[in-house]
Amino acid sequence: MSEKKLRIMVIDDENIVGKRLKPALEKSGYLVETFEDGETALARYDEEPFDIVVTDIRMEKVDGIEVLEKILAKSDRTKVIIITGYATVEVAREALSKGAFDFIAKPFKPDDLRTIIKRAANELRQ
């Protein structure tokens, strides 16, 4: 596979999420950068776009929905995957209607996320 590695951005204000997902996803052959808030993530996206964005929905200041809206406004090619917690399934539906690729509910296993990312990657490569 001489294809260019897909770039993934993980945003979650729980730092352990980024800390664990980065090596887990890199192992699957992606380039991963992690962020703990929406603002820095969006700033970084402006510097260099990402193919897949995995973002927690509930964050202080800029939340997942805003990240979703801003990124899709910049590039509708980017696949945005939303991480939700309990009681925000409604919001997840809202996210889907706003153009999110999919959502995953906490708690999840690395493989659950990998499956979704893989689907997203396949769509991107078509």
Binding site: I16, V17, P107, F108
Partner: peptide, 20 residues
């Protein structure tokens, strides 16, 4: 409702960490 949500964070952290 809020507590369940809050609980999901450490649970998620634990599940990710243990799985990996």
């Amino acid at each position: 409702a809020g507590v369940a949500h809050e609980l999901n964070n450490p649970l998620n952290n634990s599940l990710l960490t243990a799985s990996l």
